[in-house]
Simulated assay, not measured.
Amino acid sequence: MPFLLLVVLIVSACGNKETTNANNTSKSEAETVTYQSETGPIEVPAAPQRIVALTNGPNVLALGGNIVGIDQWTNMNPLFQEKLKGDEVVSEEDLEKIIELEPDLIIAGSHMKNLDKLNEIAPTVVYTWGKLDYLTQQIEIGKLLNKEKKAIEWVTDFKARAETAGEAIRAKIGNDATVSVIESGDKEFYVFGNNYARGTEILYQAMKLKMPEKVKELALESGVYTFSSEVLPEFAGDYIIFSKNPDGDNSFLETATWKNIPAVKNGRVIEINTKASTYSDPITLEYLLKIFEKSLLDN
């Protein structure tokens, strides 16, 4: 066979292979699956490449999803800032911005505006806050991103580790020892039940630690209870997880009301950063689990 003809055949074959690969890639990116959302079945990309997460961004990040648009609160969280560097901050009001991002999937809250318009831009899946527990929510995001196996593996492993840590902590501090999770606001305080982030899911659900009776009475069902500084001691457990805003007014920490609480006197206050603790995704949960293990076991 003449050399020139051989070269032509080889080049032609390579060109055909590249065309085939390009077609396969295009087909793969264009493939869709049916996701059973809370509003009904919806066609979504089998492998979404450009996600606008108006909610549940941390859950997406934990599974390695590629976010191009994010809500302002997640963007402000110190745990996620590095991962979100360069991403556009958007809300459901920023329709033109979202169009420019060319998303192939949008995740939104069921309470948000413009859901129909968002769905015209890209398939939009909505979640109602609090409808799913914190672990089931991660599995649902796994299903949505076609990464259910990875999500389930993490859930199984995390539950086992958190429960084991809980057993060790209860053995150390006593089965009847109480823990309260308290946060300071501008002019008020908050105490949390067992499903309101700030690590409450870990402490009360996974570790099975006890909350004070007054907290159980006023915050367990509602998730959070607001009170004034005068009654702060009434909500303090044997141990206090104090959610502290580093930019807030924390002058109350110098008051006699705070200093005379037994948990404070006994050095049983564990501070967590409010800005890094308001979600219940795997990244946040792993961060808080380490803090709780070290603080409660070393105390």
Rank of each mutant, 00 (worst) to 15 (best):
S243Y: 02
E31D: 13
Q36G: 08
Q49Y: 03
E148Q: 07
W73N: 08
K17I: 15
L118A: 11
V264W: 10
F292L: 06
V126Q: 15
A276I: 02
T278L: 14
F252W: 09
F242D: 00
M76Q: 15
E230F: 13
L54D: 08
T226P: 05
G185R: 12
K216P: 01
L288E: 05
A46I: 01
E167W: 03
T226Q: 14
R170V: 04
V126P: 07
I241Y: 06
L288P: 01
P103M: 01
K149M: 02
D176F: 02
Y225V: 09
N75V: 01
A122N: 12
A236L: 04
N250A: 01
N75S: 15
K244V: 01
P123D: 06
G64Q: 00
T34I: 10
Y287C: 02
V68M: 10
I270A: 00
K265Y: 03
I99E: 10
C14R: 14
S37V: 10
E148M: 04
V7F: 08
E163G: 13
A122M: 08
L5D: 00
V181Y: 03
L135Y: 10
N119K: 11
S180G: 13
D281Q: 10
D157H: 11
A30Q: 14
Y225S: 07
I51N: 08
Q81T: 14
I291K: 08
T257D: 12
I241T: 04
N23P: 05
N75H: 13
I240A: 01
A160V: 06
M112F: 09
G86D: 11
T178C: 02
V44S: 06
E43M: 11
L288A: 08
T156K: 13
R170F: 00
T128I: 02
P103K: 04
T136R: 14
L144I: 06
E38G: 07
K214L: 13
A46W: 05
V269G: 06
E92H: 14
A263S: 13
A168T: 11
T19V: 15
L4M: 11
I98Q: 02
Y35E: 03
K214R: 13
G86A: 11
S295D: 10
E293H: 03
I182A: 07
Q137R: 12
V52Y: 07
D176L: 11
G237A: 09
A256Y: 08
Y204R: 11
E29K: 15
V89G: 12
Y134K: 01
